[in-house]
């Protein structure tokens, strides 16, 4: 459904140098450097997928989203989405997509949310039956009924984001682009937003592409991860694959009745130790977790045991490190 092939995009950026003389010179002749924002980006996305698009700041995430939503024209490469080339058939193409820029609002600031929705209905020419049905559904599932009459400027960030997402779905788009949808939200709102994204993906089959810096978003939502760094696509695969790639490490946390000395267990490394709690890192390919617990319980009186995988955050960090970005 979404197909990118060898997309390249570079920007000309004016170089600024310090000093008054340089500033005066820049008024007349500016020096430019070419920044390669995207380099040979290719991937396919099938209908119904949720894809997490990650990478450090300035890696090219937003540029890719802008190319895919028809805002920017790449220097070269092929991009076919729903049979359209986004930048060529802009008006007919964008009818089929929804875009949320987390840092920017698409609602009219000074009027009640419902008025913004009404205007969007006219912009997208949404038939009134469809509009009413969608509005009811979105109002229910995003708990909007109390805030529809409130001017946008009086909404909290979490409330606003819920409205933004609703606004981008009024016209039944097949693809939803979310650029940092959870930025600045509190834990509750984050969970609500994630829940909802999952629901529309499941129930309506909306394909979702989201960029984020919050790895919990990825863990909760994304079947698939695309990682970009310095304009190049570095990783394309599932979270499970990523996990297995970075090994079979587990974190074992144990609580026990007071014990004066650290206990060493063969095949593990002790990450932290207090008289009541210790954390071990284990490679389960070498030593099964069960045998470690057995060994531990011989020496100390266990109260509680927790076994965890490496947090996604660290996996991603490993990946960044591997590619030196």
């Amino acid at each position: 459904m979404i197909e990118l092939q060898g997309i390249n995009k570079s920007f000309k950026v004016a170089r600024r140098t310090a000093g008054f003389g340089q500033a005066v010179k820049a008024l007349f002749a500016r020096e430019h450097t070419i920044v390669e924002a995207l380099h040979n980006i290719s991937f396919d996305i099938s209908p119904g997928e949720i894809v997490g698009y990650i990478g450090p700041n300035g890696a090219g995430k937003s540029t890719t989203i802008k190319v895919m939503s028809g805002i920017l024209v790449p220097d070269s490469g092929i991009c076919q989405i729903l049979g359209y080339t986004p930048w060529q058939d802009r008006t007919s193409y964008v009818r089929n997509i929804g875009v949320v820029f987390g840092q920017r609002t698409q609602l009219w600031w000074d009027v009640p949310v419902i008025d913004s929705f009404g205007l969007l209905r006219d912009i997208y020419k949404i038939p009134s039956a469809v509009y009413r049905e969608n509005l009811t559904l979105l109002t229910e599932s995003l708990a909007l009924s109390d805030i529809l009459q409130t001017p946008v400027r009086q909404l909290s960030l979490g409330q606003r984001m819920r409205c933004e997402i609703a606004a981008s779905l009024l016209h039944n788009p097949q693809i939803l682009f979310l650029d940092e949808p959870t930025i600045g939200l509190d834990a509750n709102s984050k969970i609500a937003v994630r829940q909802f994204i999952k629901t529309i993906n499941k129930e309506r089959g909306v394909t979702v592409i989201l960029t984020t810096h919050d790895m919990n978003d990825i863990e909760a939502l994304a079947d698939r991860i695309l990682m970009i760094g310095k304009g190049t696509l570095l990783y394309d695969g599932t979270l499970v694959d990523l996990r297995s790639r970075f090994g079979s490490k587990r974190i074992v946390t144990i609580d026990y009745h007071e014990h004066a000395e650290p206990v060493d267990v063969e095949g593990t490394s002790c990450l932290s130790w207090t008289p009541e709690r210790a954390v071990y890192s284990v490679d389960i390919d070498d030593v099964p977790v069960a045998s470690i617990i057995a060994k531990l319980s011989e020496q100390i009186e266990l109260v509680d045991i927790g076994i965890g995988t490496t947090p996604v955050e660290e996996l991603i960090l490993e990946l960044y490190k591997e590619h030196q970005i």
Binding site: S69, R90, R95, V99, F101, R104, Q106, Y124
Partner: peptide, 13 residues
């Protein structure tokens, strides 16, 4: 402000 991007993703002139 970059709000022009927003206009470009809407199906109108």
């Amino acid at each position: 402000s970059g709000d022009f991007d927003r206009l470009l993703v809407r199906p109108r002139s």
